[in-house]
Design a protein around this nucleic acid. Structure first.
Lengths: 201, 201
DNA sequence: GCCATCAAGTAGACACTGTCTAGTCGAAAA
DNA sequence: TTTTCGACTAGACAGTGTCTACTTGATGGC
């Protein structure tokens, strides 16, 4: 029988994530998590108040990873504010592809009550701030309409989030023939937006 | 004690939808559904193979409602193909606001396995066809780049779906101050897109 | 060294869940 | 009238989240 892990809290989060990846949030049960961490079914309660606390911790962790992924994508980009804005969107989409289980947990307020787990909203706001700063940079450089940045933030966020959501949870990924890979899908959508932007009067 | 409903199948779907609206999919239990339909816990199994069959039926029903809402929004619009395209998007967003519980069930493939419940995918394809036809109409009228309509379909679908998803499940609706109502939110996003389209060279 | 303290894990209990089964009942068909 | 059959009931089973009391092992002060 394998011995107990040194850092049970981390082991619980890892086991939970693995279960969520394999069979969705529904397959994530406290007892199976405990089993995978080689510990009895009561042990996780010493690290998390209840099941939703695990989900909240994973959601907050997801937003932190998203923030890092966007910042990392922008760091290597030095061809101006618009290029950095695009890199930010690519970072968002890449995060969704790399961490689908996290992604699904992050946008399910019924799983982790936002008023009970404010750390999730805080982490979400930090992620959004990256995008806000990005848009403000574009505005300062004269590459976006001046004024309140929020409309632009919400519009671009919606497009990239919608694309990721439709790919992960929608019927999009089951429609063979349109896009062979998600990367190609994102490229085509980005190209379409660019075409629209450039062909209009 | 209230008597058994005449159409138990419909009563089960209604009770399931009510439960999902109140506490999310997690609160939807076969036994509570049966209780609300004033029937014993085994009765629902005569109308649905298992719990996921109920969810699949609701998801398919949701896509049918979505199709109807988009078609109805377009029917009253006779100011050209672009106006009909915009009406289609408004219909999508309005559906999401009016039927949030349906909406959440429709985009959770882990709840109702698509291979086990092909009727969901079929209904989803019918919904998408509305948008495809809409884009093709714009192309024929010379109001959209010619060629494969799918890139435009996916791009616009992503934006409106992302907006709805962020409003229903994301931190957007908890950010007071930006948009007082979802209608205003949608108007501002649509305006932002329009502004982008018209101010670019 | 010894003992108190305390976080971390165990083991058992409880009410609840999804699903299976055998049995019941009433209406329609023969 | 008897048979058949779909719809429903009632009981069982394993599995679940969460609570509780109990054990254990390390840590600190004396």
């Amino acid at each position: 029988m394998p011995k107990r892990p040194a850092d049970l809290r981390r082991a619980i989060l890892d086991a939970s994530l693995a279960l969520a990846s394999e069979g969705g949030v529904g397959a994530l049960s406290m007892r199976e998590v405990a089993r995978r961490a080689h510990v009895t079914h009561g042990a996780p309660y010493h690290h998390f108040k209840d099941r939703s606390a695990i989900l909240a911790a994973l959601a907050a962790e997801g937003f932190a990873l998203l923030t890092k992924e966007m910042l990392s994508a922008m760091k290597d980009e030095d061809r101006g504010s618009v290029a950095r804005f695009e890199a930010c969107g690519r970072g968002y989409f890449r995060f969704a592809l790399r961490h689908p289980a996290h992604m699904k947990l992050m946008f399910r307020p019924e799983l982790a009550n936002p008023t009970e787990h404010p750390e999730v909203d805080q982490a979400a706001c930090a992620s959004m701030q990256v995008l806000v700063d990005c848009v403000i940079e574009c505005q300062k450089a004269g590459n976006a309409p001046a004024g309140d940045p929020m409309p632009l933030v919400v519009t671009s966020w919606s497009t990239v989030h919608g694309l990721a959501a439709l790919w992960l949870d929608g019927p999009l990924c089951r429609m063979k023939g349109f896009a062979a890979s998600p990367q190609e899908l994102a490229r085509r959508v980005a190209h379409t937006l660019g075409e629209l932007l450039s062909t209009k009067p």
